[in-house]
């Protein structure tokens, strides 16, 4: 089986005020299916940028990003949106739940794009919330939950569509030690029990320890160690 994620000669730069800022320099990288990997590096080194390319919310200027056999760097905007909905679960540092929706509705959101019936959606949402241990908080709004709980709802939202890969950009970055621990356990479980490929960006060595492998990035280059 080929690696589920293949990054081939990828470069990325941003243009700001007509200045070209190089962010990633000719990156090559592979991740096998069922892996749990962490991406570390100093602030501004390009971690988020790389993660975004893998998750299909940004495109490289050069090179290919192949996920499960699909060259996603070649997809157009709307094809890419569909691809994301089917293949990727996202977890953000600041949870990014919709404040006017309940936990249930937040988790249901990605399912609105599917053809599932209302009853089926309900079943999926309840299962996802059950996995993160928040079935009893279904009717709560984000502001009625703790940070750790919000992040668990976000994880439920990320897994409800049963995606191939789960990406997290500093998923524990805004949490206290105990909550962070809960989240890491959950990610481990998703990887072991549900066989998800998990890729997280983190600054926390403790979090990185949970991963099978750590990749380091510095000033836009993959490096052996920091």
């Amino acid at each position: 089986m080929p690696p589920v994620i293949q990054i081939q000669n990828v470069s990325k730069s941003y243009t700001r005020d007509s200045f070209e800022i190089p962010v990633l320099n000719n990156i090559n990288m592979e991740i096998e299916e069922g892996e749990f990997q962490a991406l570390m590096g100093p602030s501004g080194s390009g971690k988020t940028t790389l993660l975004n390319l893998i998750a299909g919310i940004d495109k490289p200027n050069k090179g290919k990003v192949i996920v499960a056999g699909t060259d996603i760097s070649a997809l157009n905007e709307s094809a890419l949106a569909k691809w994301r909905a089917n293949n990727v679960g996202f977890i953000f540092q600041f949870y990014n739940l919709i404040p006017v929706l309940t936990a249930f509705e937040n988790v249901e959101l990605p399912l609105l794009l599917t053809k599932l019936s209302k009853a089926e959606r309900k079943k999926h949402v309840e299962t996802a919330l059950e996995i993160v241990g928040l079935k009893d908080r279904m009717k709560h709004y984000p502001k009625q939950l703790s940070g750790g709980q919000e992040q668990r709802v976000a994880i439920a939202r990320a897994i409800v569509t049963d995606p191939l890969i789960i990406v997290g950009d500093e998923p524990t970055g805004d949490l206290d030690k105990n909550s962070a621990e809960e989240i890491l356990l959950l990610l481990e479980r998703l990887n072991k029990e549900f066989k998800k490929t998990v890729l997280i960006v983190t600054h926390d060595p403790h979090a990185a320890d949970r991963a099978h492998q750590i990749k380091y990035i510095d000033k836009g280059d993959l490096v052996e160690a920091l």
């Binding site: 919310i57 949106a81 994301r84 909905a85 996202f90 990014n96 919709i98 959101l109 990605p110 794009l113």
Partner: peptide, 16 residues
């Protein structure tokens, strides 16, 4: 702005 970015990430299209 952020929420719309979230929704787009989840696969919501321009039409939505």
């Amino acid at each position: 702005t952020r929420e719309y970015a979230v929704m787009k990430t989840l696969g919501f299209s321009a039409k939505h």
